[in-house]
Simulated assay, not measured.
Amino acid sequence: MIRPIDITSEKEALDVLKIQLPSYQVEAELIDFHGIPALYDTAETLMMSGETFYGYYENGSLCGAISFKRDNETIDIHRLMVHPAHFRKGIARQLLHWLEQNNLQEKRLIVSTGARNIPAVRFYEKSGFRKTGIELIVGTLAIARFEKLRTK
Rank of each mutant, 00 (worst) to 15 (best):
A85I: 04
G60N: 13
W98K: 00
I77K: 11
I36K: 13
E147T: 04
F87Y: 14
R145W: 13
N117M: 08
L99D: 00
F68D: 10
I118C: 02
D76A: 14
E44P: 12
L96P: 01
D41M: 10
L99Y: 02
S61E: 10
N59T: 10
Y57G: 06
T74E: 10
A144H: 02
N102M: 13
A115Y: 05
G50Q: 11
H34R: 12
A120S: 09
M48F: 13
V16M: 09
F146H: 07
H78S: 15
Y57S: 08
D32I: 01
Y54M: 00
D76P: 03
S112A: 08
N72T: 13
C63E: 09
F33H: 08
L62S: 04
D41W: 07
L99K: 03
S127H: 02
R70A: 12
G133V: 09
V111R: 01
E73R: 07
V111F: 00
E135D: 04
K11T: 15
G50N: 11
V82C: 06
I143S: 11
T45F: 01
E125H: 02
E10W: 07
E73D: 09
N117H: 07
P84C: 14
N103I: 08
H97C: 09
N72W: 05
V26T: 13
S23D: 14
A144N: 05
N72E: 04
E27V: 09
G64R: 01
L104A: 15
I110C: 07
N117E: 10
Y24P: 14
S67M: 12
G60F: 15
S67C: 15
D15M: 12
A38R: 15
V111A: 04
E12P: 07
F53P: 01
D41I: 13
L96G: 06
H34P: 03
A142W: 00
P119C: 11
E100W: 12
G128F: 12
I19T: 06
L96T: 03
I77F: 02
L104T: 10
I77S: 04
E73P: 03
L136D: 05
S127L: 01
A144M: 05
E51V: 04
E29N: 05
I91S: 14
R108F: 00
R79P: 01
K126R: 06
Y40E: 05
V16K: 11
I91V: 13
E125K: 04
L14H: 08
P22K: 14
V16P: 07
L46W: 02
A65P: 11
Q94P: 04
Y40M: 15
E58S: 08
L99R: 00
N102S: 01
Y24L: 07
R93H: 07
Y54C: 02
V82F: 03
G90R: 10
T74W: 00
R116P: 00
F123P: 05
I19Y: 10
Q25P: 06
D15Q: 12
V138Y: 11
H83S: 14
L109Q: 05
D71E: 11
Y40I: 01
A43S: 08
N102Q: 08
F146C: 03
L104I: 07
L14A: 06
I110F: 02
Q105Y: 08
